[in-house]
């Protein structure tokens, strides 16, 4: 039987990582929250099956599966949810940068938007390896576990995703 305290110390610290993955995959705050909450309950119910394994890729694998189920339903019945990414982009306030000049803040904000847009333009299988590798700093083995694919596939997807991103974001280092 699942032990609540163990679950809280082992699994809940990875809530931010789980949410980040879900939010990048489904691109909607509310849907991502629903998905993560449901995944945590599933994880709690099957906590016993984790045994000595690593809780982070395990939880994120459950989150990822929920996301793909949702994406599949979304493909069959499109337009169920208005994706709010665009809205957020137009509304997002400039970052607080005390002492930074306004030009630098704007520059930073533009870079953020360009990088976000480029990652968002990738299809989910490529987007997820980029998010897991670059933003969550996971190993190839962990990513392979989360996405249920061989390590070789992780590497080839990552390399294709990087090639695509270098194309979209070329501007950012050619100017240096």
């Amino acid at each position: 039987m699942a032990n609540e305290r163990d679950f809280e110390t082992l699994v809940l610290p990875h809530l931010h990582a789980a949410f980040n993955l879900a939010r990048w995959l489904v691109r909607d705050d509310h849907v991502a929250e629903d998905i993560v909450q449901d995944a945590c309950l599933k994880a709690y119910r099957y906590f016993g099956s984790l045994r000595e394994g690593d809780p982070r890729p395990w939880l994120m694998g459950i989150v990822r599966n929920n996301c793909y189920t949702w994406l599949e339903e979304e493909r069959l019945i499109p337009g169920r949810v208005e994706l709010d990414d665009e809205l957020i982009d137009t509304l997002s306030a400039p970052e607080h940068g005390q002492g930074m000049d306004p030009g630098a803040i704007l520059d930073r904000e533009r870079t953020r938007k360009a990088v976000d847009d480029a990652i968002r333009a990738l299809t989910p299988p490529f987007r997820e390896v980029v998010v897991l590798r670059e933003l969550e700093g996971l190993s190839y083995a962990e990513i392979a576990q989360i996405a249920s694919i061989p390590i070789g596939t992780v590497m080839s997807r990552l390399s294709r995703a990087r090639a695509e991103l270098k194309g979209t974001l070329a501007l950012f280092w050619r100017n240096k």
Binding site: L12, E33, V36, R108, L135, L165, W173
Partner: peptide, 29 residues
Amino acid sequence: LSHLIRAHATRHRASPALEAAVRTEIALQ
């Protein structure tokens, strides 16, 4: 490229409300 992404891409964080909801459900369960 890695540096650019790590420095600039958005890291979405779970809201305190989500964390509270999860903890409550776990406790009830």
